[in-house]
Design a protein around this nucleic acid. Structure first.
Lengths: 343, 343
DNA sequence: TTGTAAGCGTTATCAC
DNA sequence: GTGATAACGCTTACAA
């Protein structure tokens, strides 16, 4: 790893290394000529200072950590993109880790960030750390980190810190209302992972919309649990085979949506005639294939960008009160919500 | 950024910092009792050594750089996933940059990696740096990096280094042969970006397959250029309106495929009856929606993983000859290649 | 305007 | 076995 260092440059330019340091950082007095001479030498040697040494000396690194559950997921990779863009523009270095939604890996990721002495952290937790013990653990770990952090997408309650979240409740509310306005009355909800706070908030939004409109909530129409595509497939299949079943669904997440769609296909049921729906987030490729599925959109990359901006802003104003950005998803109706007679 | 350091631990444990260092790194002699005492103190203080100081002292960082064109693209985010997994398992730190397929940003990314003194680099170049000047630039920049690197997916010719590539030629060849075997004779190619080597290799594979089977190459059936979705849309639309047009296409990339599909839809042409095709790489969501599109698959994440392994291996054996991994894409036929009569 | 020297938190080389 | 001490490459008072 030995490369030319500040000492080499100083020697070659016949000056002290402090002077070289001054021209590198463009601060402190240094005469035009000296500066020019030094710059010439630096160019000649392709000199590039060492971030390592610099950070150590300044007691402040320029690395920002990002922890996401998975990189291979359109939602998180969009967040990543937003974060990336801002950091590059602002001259920070991005250190990335994934947790695979696994608590242990999540902890290890956090440790890795501490090890690297990141200047700050953008964090999409593997889960919400709701039970007392887990919460304490997490709070203390984040505290140990010793750097500011922004919680992204998945709230950890009681943590008074910057965060960028989605308004899952009102998103779900709006989606459900759209179904109601379309004329549906027997509406079901596919809740996705209710282990996660965001999952529960979505169910709550649904409930509220139903209640406000005086619509009953059939217990069997509530498909909740911590399940993915296959489980949804099974549950939807069973439900739709019952004589009494919903004419529409609010689907709280992507994976459930896929399970739902497959179930519909295998049951030979048509959308929206046999079952209408509105879901959270676009399915990847949905726009490309121009499928008329109504859903709640979030400008995902901009969520990431906002988180990065919030973090950077905190560097300058460490004292300011924690900011809580809650972005309301936009409802886009494309037809799958309609109530139409079966042909 | 001030956190408890090795000195603090040493003092508290009543030993020298060298001894603490020994237990941290688990090498060198240190008595059972001393070690236990030190470990106790470290635990009590949640001590975590500083990667910064460590790297500086060892003259060797544990950071590995990854440069990809965009994070928000299923292909690259899969590569990223593969890289990420291996690095985490092996205890390396991932530093990520994107180039946006832009040469200038690509250069800046490279500089950033040099600045960080990455131990090694995994690099998907923004382009192939084919012209003499660009190549020299790139070669010298990579040399300046001073660390081993692995070129991923987009070859830079004449660079004698580790790389992980796809066999675009034989992929294209296989795809074209599949169309021929299905009974097509008038076959077109949608070449995508022939600025990139991988684009041209695909066209070459196509040509070879046609030639080997004694099939003619109609010049107008070759849609080449550096274009994306819209341009493909236009060109396909025009071509298919001609009385003489292909009955099948080999489509060299994702974006072109989208343009093609949209053109087909707007022309009210059916796949594969009016135009069959085989393309490179799955479209995101294609499997979910179970669209019967035939394509060449690569296990993308494993390409990334291989690159990471290659790089890490080189750390241990700096002298070994450059390795060139060329992965042959697997052809998956799902129906869109068929030659069937228009109903 | 410039140079000297003392850090920054480690590791590594020696003596002891 | 263990502890000084000199690196590592930089920044930053403080002198000059």
């Amino acid at each position: 790893m030995r490369s030319v260092n500040i000492q080499d440059i100083a020697r070659e330019a016949g000056v002290g290394k402090a002077t070289v340091s001054r021209v590198i950082n463009g601060k402190g007095y240094v005469s035009r000529e000296t500066a020019a001479k030094i710059r010439a030498v630096m160019d000649r040697y392709h000199y590039q200072p060492s971030a390592l040494a610099r950070s150590l000396s300044r007691r402040e690194s320029d690395a920002i950590g990002l922890i996401i559950p998975e990189a291979n997921n359109p939602f998180f990779s969009s967040l990543l993109t937003g974060v990336c863009e801002v950091l590059e523009k602002c001259g920070y270095t991005l250190i990335l880790r994934t947790s695979g939604n696994d608590t242990q890996r999540d902890y290890r990721a956090l440790e890795a960030m501490r090890y690297q002495r990141v200047r700050g952290l953008i964090y999409v937790p593997a889960c919400n750390y709701e039970n007392e013990r887990d919460f304490e653990q997490m709070a203390s770990r984040l505290n140990d980190l010793g750097s500011p952090y922004v919680i992204l997408d998945r709230p950890i309650s009681r943590l008074d810190c910057d965060c960028v979240l989605s308004d899952n409740f009102s998103g779900a509310y709006a989606a459900t209302e759209a179904l109601i306005r379309a004329g549906h009355r027997a509406i079901g909800v596919i809740a996705g992972n209710t282990q996660l706070v965001i999952g529960r908030e979505r169910v709550e939004g649904f409930r509220k919309a139903m209640a406000q409109n005086g619509l009953p909530l059939h217990r069997p129409f509530l498909l909740t649990g911590s399940f993915g595509q296959e489980e949804t497939y099974r549950q939807v299949t069973m439900l739709m085979r019952e004589p009494e079943h919903p004419t529409a669904f609010f689907i709280a997440n992507n994976r459930s949506e896929i399970g739902f769609l497959h179930a519909m296909r295998d049951l030979k049921l048509k959308i929206p005639a046999d079952a209408a729906f509105v879901s959270f987030d676009e399915l990847p490729g949905q726009l490309v294939f121009e499928l008329p599925y109504s859903c709640l959109d979030r400008e995902v990359a901009s969520l990431g960008a906002k988180a990065a901006q919030l973090l950077i802003r905190r560097f300058d104003e460490p004292g300011r009160p924690a900011e809580r950005l809650v972005v309301v998803p936009r409802l886009t109706l494309r037809g799958s919500e309609k109530r139409i007679a079966r042909k």
